[in-house]
Design a protein around this nucleic acid. Sequence first.
DNA 1: CCAACCATGTAAGCTGTTACATGATTGA
DNA 2: TCAATCATGTAACAGCTTACATGGTTGG
Lengths: 174, 174
Amino acid sequence: MTPLSYALLGLIRGEPRTGYALRKVFETTPMGNYSSSPGSIYPALKILAKAGLVSGGNKAPYVITAAGEKAFGDWLLKPMAENEAIDLALLRFAFLHDHPDKQVSLDFLKSFAMAAKARAVGLKAFMTSEAWQEIPMQSRLAVEHGLRTTEASAEWALDAWKQLAAGASEEGRQ
Amino acid sequence: MTPLSYALLGLIRGEPRTGYALRKVFETTPMGNYSSSPGSIYPALKILAKAGLVSGGNKAPYVITAAGEKAFGDWLLKPMAENEAIDLALLRFAFLHDHPDKQVSLDFLKSFAMAAKARAVGLKAFMTSEAWQEIPMQSRLAVEHGLRTTEASAEWALDAWKQLAAGASEEGRQ
DNA sequence: CCAACCATGTAAGCTGTTACATGATTGA
DNA sequence: TCAATCATGTAACAGCTTACATGGTTGG
């Protein structure tokens, strides 16, 4: 199961789609960091079908199976690991939307923020090492860029937590 | 020429290194997003050697050739394209450090900031499209993350420009 | 009716990873 | 001397891209 497989599985789970419809998603939305080329989509879908995670295909929309739901659910519920790629973590977060328990999303954001902060600490440690002094200005600025975006990630997670928490309590009131 | 090839070429250009020394760089510095596995480093070095961009190897440090300097220089001097991967752009910027003309780095940062802003505009356009309204909260927040980090990138470029410009004028005074 | 789009496929090739393997050198 | 580190290699495989190819459907 590659990142692309999970992206496809999650979209199919949202609603049944043909391979072409899936390609359109990658072409027209910010999910465009994933392939969209026929040479990657169609083989990936066949692998999902062979594994029994989706059914259909052959000009009909693919539909997620019970086994697919299980595999996808397990993947979704893992907390974010410190070394997990940010893109992948965000993909998982985006697909948490229809999970009945909002607390799962809130917990995920907490683990996301912690992972981002840990990365920032690692970069800062490098920036105070002896090696840092010998590194030319441009290279140091490039590392600074990594720190800035990592910190922006962490801040986003905290803000997103607040927004979600507020939305959840509002729902509770209705 | 892959991103890894340029990373290797740039490091060798900085000072002659063996394959092992290059792997250590990727293992111990924030350049760790590049491979470091022997299965990618050694083949890549052989390709560089075959192309005549480096000489040496065979337990001796690799050294950049005149052809290598040319190829690397051409790559370095391209302004950042809007669709160029951020990692790759930062790699180029980091290697600009020993270019005699500071203005080249300053110009690069300008093009970097413009590319980042253009991406932010694209994301914002998506966020005001009709599609946006139908998208669940978690997915919207994920896109928000993209916007936040993109904006952090753009801000970094402006700040870096100021720092570099200040450093350059100080050098001028000496 | 013709262009545009829907819809799928496959072959060739590039990059990179994992895992395994070898042998030299050096410090405790 | 023995573990760690230096130093290189390669075989098998995964994943994706590019490019090419096919045919059906629909709107103007």
